[in-house]
C-alpha cells in the first residue's frame, strides 16, 4: 500500500464515485428532492418578504440534514456490504487518496446541488436588488458547511455496513449539530437542567455548524468561522483514515 498522496489517484476515485451516483436514478432523485425542498422553503416567504435572497441561504440548513447523509451513506457502507472494500485497498493507491477521492465526489454532488439553486438567484436579481457579496458569501458558507458535514458523514459511513443505518445515524448526528443552539435553549428553559448544564450552552453553540455558517451567509468572512470548518473537516477526514488504518 502506497503512503504518499497523488491528486490524480484521488480524482480517479472521485470520478468512479460520481459515475456511481449517476449510473442509477439515485443521484438524480437526491438532487431533485434537494431542489424541491429548498424551493419550497424559499418560496414560502420569498415574495412576501421583499424578495430577500437571504432566505435561500437560510433554507439550506434543513435539506442538508437529509441530502448529505443520503450522499455520504453509500461512500463506505455500500463498499462494505458489497465486500469491495478489500479490493479497493488492493489498488495501488493510498488510503488517504481513496478517502479524499470519495470526499471530492460528495463535494462535487454538493456543489452541483447548490448550483441548481441558481435560478432562485436569477429571480432575486430580476425582481429585486440583492447584495452580491451576500450571494457569494452564502454559497461559500454553504460549501464550507456542506464540506464539514460530508467529512463527518463519510466517517460515520465507515462505521456501518448498512447504508440505512449509516443514513439514520448521520441524520441524527447532523440534527444534533444543527440544533445544538435550539437544544441549549430548550435545556436553558428547563430550570433544573439550566442549573446543572447552564455552562454547556456556550460550548453547544460553538460546535453548532449553523452558528458558524450564519456570518458567512451575510457576506461577513470571519477567519474563526472558516478555520472552524476547515479544522472540522480535517478532523473527521483524519478520524476516517485512522479508523480504516486501525481495522486493517
Amino acid at each position: 500500500m502506497k503512503k504518499n498522496f497523488e491528486t490524480r489517484h484521488a480524482l480517479v476515485i472521485a470520478r468512479r464515485e460520481v459515475n456511481n451516483y449517476f449510473n442509477t436514478p439515485v443521484g438524480y432523485i437526491f438532487l431533485a428532492i434537494f431542489i424541491f425542498f429548498v424551493n419550497i422553503l424559499v418560496f414560502l416567504r420569498f415574495w412576501e418578504t421583499g424578495k430577500n435572497i437571504q432566505l435561500l441561504f437560510e433554507s439550506f440548513h434543513i435539506p442538508f440534514l437529509v441530502f448529505i447523509p443520503a450522499v455520504t451513506m453509500r461512500l463506505w457502507a455500500e463498499e462494505k456490504k458489497a465486500g469491495t472494500t478489500e479490493i479497493l485497498f488492493t489498488l495501488p493507491m493510498s488510503t488517504i487518496e481513496i478517502i479524499v477521492g470519495k470526499y471530492i465526489s460528495a463535494m462535487f454532488l454538493l456543489i452541483l446541488a447548490l448550483s441548481l439553486t441558481l435560478p432562485v438567484v436569477g429571480i432575486a436579481v430580476y425582481a429585486g436588488s440583492p447584495d452580491f457579496m451576500v450571494i457569494i458569501g452564502g454559497y461559500l458558507g454553504a460549501i464550507f458547511m456542506g464540506g464539514a458535514y460530508i467529512a463527518l458523514g463519510q466517517y460515520i459511513s465507515w462505521l456501518f455496513a448498512e447504508q440505512t443505518v449509516a443514513f439514520l445515524v448521520t441524520t441524527l448526528v447532523f440534527f444534533v449539530l444543527y440544533a445544538t443552539s435550539f437544544l441549549s435553549t430548550m435545556l436553558f428553559n428547563v430550570p433544573a437542567l439550566a442549573l446543572v448544564l447552564g455552562w454547556l450552552k456556550d460550548l453547544m453553540a460553538f460546535i453548532s455548524v449553523s452558528w458558524h455558517y450564519e456570518s458567512l451567509s451575510r457576506g461577513i468572512f470571519d477567519t474563526r468561522d472558516i478555520l472552524f470548518f476547515i479544522l472540522f473537516t480535517a478532523l473527521f477526514l483524519y478520524l476516517n483514515w485512522r479508523s480504516i488504518e486501525k481495522s486493517r
Partner: peptide, 28 residues
Amino acid sequence: TTVLLVALFLALNYLSYGIYLRFDLSQE
C-alpha cells in the same frame, strides 16, 4: 494521537477567538 488531534481542534478554535480577521463585504 486522536485525542491530541481533537484537543488541537478545540485549542485552535479557542485560540482563533483571540487573533482573527474579519472582512465585511456585504452592502449592509
